[in-house]
Amino acid sequence: MPEAGSTRVVGDQPVVHRRTGGLGAYLRSIGAIIWKDLVAELRSRELLSAMLVFALLVVLIFNFALELDIRTRETVTSGVLWVTFAFAGTLGLNRSMAVEKDRGCLDGLLLVPVDRTAIYFGKVIGNLVFMLIVEAIVLPLYSVLYNINLFQPGLLAVILLGSIGYVAVGTLLSSMAVHARTRDVLLPILLFPVVLPVLVPAIKASNGFLQGFEMAEILPWLNLLIVYDVIFMAVAFMVFDYVVEE
């Protein structure tokens, strides 16, 4: 990241600089981290391809496990979709942090004189982009394979909101799990019980849209989802500093 690196000030100023960068500088450093993740992914394509293939395999397994005939399809589609996204999501979260750790990038990132939370938000948005790309490919494929229209604005909004909450918690926890000996196994165990409050309303709201429930029935779930997104984002924002501190 040459841009953020060049703003480093010699002498006794870096600490001052770190706190008084202003919103513009803060957003620029978030942008730089997202950009770095996207470029790295564009060159290697190892994260997205793994998430995608895995997601499709999960859908395939569900096909046999649940006998997705027309009648059951209506009721289980939201569940199948969210399980797929959640599983593929952990794969991506794990990988995106492991790459930082193994190649020593994380230490480099922490040395950059920006607010640590900028790193958090940068990683969150980067992970969110990956998750949304996977979803953007799985949804049309699912629509074609099972002849069901998933392109309803309400459903897409729920998927976006659910992914935000999922990634907000997931990024925080994956930056902890990556330091553990058992990191690949640990992330889903840490993440799933904690992220349940996001997944439950997301599944319920998706189901509501797919089954054509009235808006009044779906709205409480949507509200809950938004509130949880905000809560988890805020908590992660507050504690992230302690997670990456050396």
Binding site: L172, V195, L196, V200, P201, L224, Y228, V235, A236, V239
Partner: peptide, 16 residues
């Protein structure tokens, strides 16, 4: 950190 995040998430699970 996990103790705090986990403790927050439990009542939210209950609510949902």
């Amino acid at each position: 950190v996990y103790g705090i995040v986990g403790f927050l998430s439990v009542p939210l699970t209950f609510l949902s």
